[in-house]
Amino acid sequence: MSHPTHADGGHDLPHSHQKHYLIVAAVLTVVTAVEIGILFLPAVNGTWWVVPFIGVLAVFKFGLVVGEFMHLRPDHGVYKFLFMSPMFLALFSFIALSALAVVTYQPFGGGYAITQRDRKAGFVPPSAGGGFEVAWPEDKLKAAFAEAEKGGFAKGKATFASTCANCHRGDGGGMPALGPNMTDDCFKHGGSLAELYTTIGKGVQGTAMPAWSTSMSPDAIRQAAFFVRSLKGKNVAGGLECVGTKVAD
């Protein structure tokens, strides 16, 4: 690009780029139309290259606006450095986060929660959505409880961390207006193993407690109930006040 002369030392006007800008605008319009239009072509939408293709188009549009409208292409290298080094850092963090999401993905969130991706992938726990299964008799539950205790309540602990902790706090101390303290001696809806199992499975109407039997298997609910029961009497620091009835043993 040639320079205007500075003969008079006054206000030399740079070239107008209006035509150039209008051409860029036309290209941006066409590319956007292609991006959107391609999704309405049933023969094309669904082939493997659609996602990479619209991705490339977006990057192309990004480059056009930065390079032409923001004038970075013909501009000084210091501007390029200032903008593009953090831009690539951001891109790499984005790629790292996406990779991490793929690597750490586990069906049911590693516990028994069913995510949208699990549903799409067809992962559904055996009885999920199949309705509520009545609690086992107390003696059978106690035997299963003893079994779970040997394993340190690992399964129930995982479910608690991924699901229950959202309202009952990570250590079970409870959250105001959400979930009561699980570590005191009080229970609002009964502290026996069968009662805990039923409360988790059916939820509590009119409270924040959902019916987990719609998304968790009976075994998962049982294991969660066992872990909750094991918290009784731990009285963690900063736990909520006792609500409900004291349960002796």
Partner: peptide, 27 residues
């Protein structure tokens, strides 16, 4: 302004990255 926009890249990069990290993870 270019330095600020560079930092904005990091800002929006994190927000978009977080969206993708949790994409399809809703219950």
């Amino acid at each position: 302004m270019w330095a600020f926009l560079g930092s904005e890249c990091m800002f929006f990069g994190s927000l978009i990255g977080t969206y993708f990290f949790y994409r399809e993870m809703s219950l």
